[in-house]
């Protein structure tokens, strides 16, 4: 039996815990505490590592880790990324500068992104349509990064599954081709 790891990262409130709960076969183990950052309208936030689980028919297990959102924990991001098979970055479009938020995570995982499959989900685009997905695509293009990016509602299982499927497709692309 092998164990694999998929990381969910993003700012506080981006929906990492919710996304993991949408696909995990068991309720995710949550390490939330009361949020003391009064600038965010959020009562609780993750300070440790949330994780969910997927057990495959082969017996292999995939652990779904939600990283702490705060940038001060970026030393943990690098450690977690080392043995991961994929990274999902969640962005909350209702925040004051979500494009800058994305850049924080692209920079934070920059060492790994040349090989680590990655997908980006932008949440709350329905209620906060600006910046648009095209703006995010422009940011990636300006950095010469080509990463699947889509609008998501992390409460919808199919949206989270589609993000995971793009990680799998990147694994497949690395298996075949020129």
């Amino acid at each position: 039996m092998n164990e694999y790891k998929i990381l969910f990262t993003g700012t506080m409130g981006a929906g990492k815990t919710t996304a993991i709960g949408s696909v995990s076969e068991a309720a995710p183990i949550v390490t939330d505490v009361a949020n003391t950052d009064l600038s965010l309208g959020k009562e609780r936030t993750t300070v440790g590592l949330d994780f969910g689980l997927l057990t495959l028919a082969s017996g292999d297990r995939i652990r779904l880790f939600g990283t702490p959102g705060q940038q001060r924990f970026d030393f943990l991001w690098k450690i977690l990324a080392k043995s991961a098979i994929g990274l999902i970055i969640l962005v909350d479009n209702s925040r004051s500068d979500p494009l800058a938020d994305l850049v924080v995570y692209l920079d934070g995982f920059a060492e790994d992104l040349s090989v680590l499959p990655c997908a980006i989900g932008i949440g709350r685009l329905d209620t906060h349509p600006v910046p648009t997905l095209e703006d995010y695509i422009d940011i990636l293009a300006n950095r010469n990064q080509l990463v699947p990016i889509m609008s998501v509602d992390v409460r919808r299982r199919e949206d989270v599954v589609l993000l995971i499927d793009t990680l799998l497709a990147q694994l497949e692309a690395n298996t075949f081709g020129a």
Binding site: P117, L133, E134, I137, L140, A141, L146, V147, P148, I149, M150, S151, E158, D159, L162, D165, T166, A169, Q170, E172, A173, N174, F176, G177, A178
Partner: peptide
Amino acid sequence: RWPPPALLGSNPVRVRMATLISRRA
């Protein structure tokens, strides 16, 4: 470059194909 949402929508097959060729020719 990653396509605008109007091209792929949420069609998982199209998203998968675009992802494949985003990574490799």
